[in-house]
Simulated assay, not measured.
Amino acid sequence: MDLAFDDELSGLRDTGRHLGHALVEDSVSSRDRRAGWDPSLFVSLASRGVPGTAIPAAFGGGGAGPLAAVALWEGLGEGSGDPGLALSLAAHGGLCGVPIAVLGSRRQRDEFLPGIADGERVAAVALAESTGGAPGVRATRTRGGWRLDGVLPDVINAPVASTLLLTAATDGGRRTAFLLDRATPGLSVRGVEPVVLRTCPFGSVELAGCEVGVGSVLGTPGAATADLVPLLAALDRTLVAAPWLGVLRRLAERAVELAGAPRLARSQSVRLAVVDLCTCAELAGDLLYRAAWELGEMTEAPRQHAAAAKLFLADALPAATRLVAELAGAEPDPVVTRLHRDWPAFVASAGGTETLRAAVAHPLLALTPGGGGS
C-alpha cells in the first residue's frame, strides 16, 4: 500500500483551498448570520467540479476516486472555513451522487447524475441514514409500486433540493432505498433555521400517502441495510469528514501564527500545545487518507479504519478550537468562534462517537480470544 501524498493529491488540495479562499470565504459571515443559502455560489462551485468530483465522468462528473475527492474537499474546508456549505456540497455529490452511481439503474444514473454533477439538481439526504438505525418512513407495497408514510427530520439540503434519497422500512422489517422527486404528490418540506452549521440548509420532510413507482427504488428492494447503509457510512467517514480535516489544519496554522506573538512565544506550555495540535492534524490526515484509499481500492474496505479516522478527528477538533480561542485572547477570531460553535454537530453526526467507537471495537473484540465477538 503506497500512501505517498503525490503531486496530484497536493494539486487537488491546493485547488480546493484556492476555491475556498476565492469564492467562499468572504461571504461566510454574512451567510452564517442570516442562515442564508446562495444558489449562485453552489452552482459556481459545481461548475468548477467540486460537488461532482466523485461522480463518473460519463455523467458529467470528475470521475475521481475517494482519495482524490478527500484531497479536494479537505482543501475546500481549509480555504473556506465554512463546514456548513461543505456539508451541503458533500451530502449532495457524495452521499447522494455516489450511491446513485454505484447502485442506480442506467435510467436513474442518466436522469439524476448530470444534474447533480452540474449543481442544477440539488440532492438531499438525512445524515442519520448512514447509522442504520430505525428509519422514520414506512413503505407499503401497492399495485403500481409503493406508498410512503412518515417524517424525516434534519434532512440536509431539504429546503432547496429537487431530489431526495431516503430509506424506508418495508416487508419483514427490511429496508429499501428510494429516490424521490421534490414534486411527488404527498411529499412536503418544512425548512428550519439551524442553530449550528447555519450555511447548510436543513429541513424536515413529511411523506403522507406518497405514491411512487417501482422505478423509484434505488438498488434491490429490501437490500438497503446491506448495500446502501454501509456505503453511506463509509462516505460520511471519509468524504463528509474531509472538510473538517481542512478546518483542523486551518486551526493548527492559526495556532502557530498566534503563538509567534511576543507575549506567547516564550511560553513552554504554549509551544507544547501548538506542537500537539499540529501533530494531531497530521495524524488525522494519515488516518483519513488511509480510509479513503481503502474505500477506493478494496472490494470490502475495513469499516473500523474509516470510523477510527472520524473518531480521531472528532476528538481533535474541540481541543483545537479551545486552544486557538485561548491564544487569541481578548480579540477572538470570528472564524474560530464559528467553528467552536459548529464542531459539536460534526461530532454528533451519524450516530456520534458512541457509534464510531462501536464500529472500531467490534472487529477488535471479534479477533480477541474469549472477547465475545458475537
Rank of each mutant, 00 (worst) to 15 (best):
D236R: 12
D315P: 01
A307W: 09
A308R: 03
R250I: 05
L251P: 02
L288T: 03
P318H: 00
K310D: 02
K310S: 14
A281W: 04
R303P: 14
V270K: 04
G246D: 06
C280R: 11
G285P: 06
P302A: 07
E294M: 11
A261Y: 03
W293R: 02
A292M: 06
E257I: 02
L258Y: 05
D236W: 09
R237P: 02
G296D: 08
R250K: 13
R254V: 04
R249A: 08
A308F: 06
L283V: 15
A281E: 06
A259V: 03
R303Y: 11
D315R: 11
L245S: 02
V240Q: 10
R266F: 04
L313N: 01
L272T: 14
Q304L: 14
A273K: 03
L277W: 08
T279I: 00
A242G: 07
T238L: 13
P262Y: 05
A284H: 04
A301R: 03
D286N: 03
L248M: 09
S267D: 10
P243T: 09
R290A: 10
R290F: 06
L245A: 00
Q304S: 15
P318Y: 00
L317A: 08
W293K: 02
C278I: 02
R254I: 04
S267G: 11
H305T: 13
A308N: 01
L251E: 05
A301S: 14
D276T: 14
R237Q: 11
A234Y: 06
G296C: 09
P243D: 08
V256F: 12
T279H: 00
P302D: 03
G260T: 02
A273T: 05
D276Q: 12
G296L: 07
T299G: 13
A307G: 08
D276V: 12
L248N: 03
A306E: 01
L313K: 00
V247F: 09
F312C: 05
A255Q: 05
V240S: 13
V274L: 12
L232P: 08
L283R: 14
P318V: 00
V270T: 11
V247D: 07
V240H: 10
W244A: 04
A255M: 11
G246A: 05
Q304W: 15
R266Q: 07
A234S: 14
Y289D: 03
Y289E: 02
R250V: 05
L277Q: 04
A301I: 08
A259M: 02
A316E: 01
Q268A: 14
L311T: 01
A316L: 06
E253G: 15
L277I: 09
A281F: 08
A307R: 03
A314K: 01
L311W: 06
V275S: 11
E253K: 13
S267I: 00
W244D: 01
A261M: 09
A308I: 01
A314E: 01
L239T: 10
D236S: 13
E257A: 12
D236Y: 08
A308S: 06
A316Q: 01
A309G: 10
V274K: 07
V240E: 07
W244E: 02
V256W: 12
E282R: 15
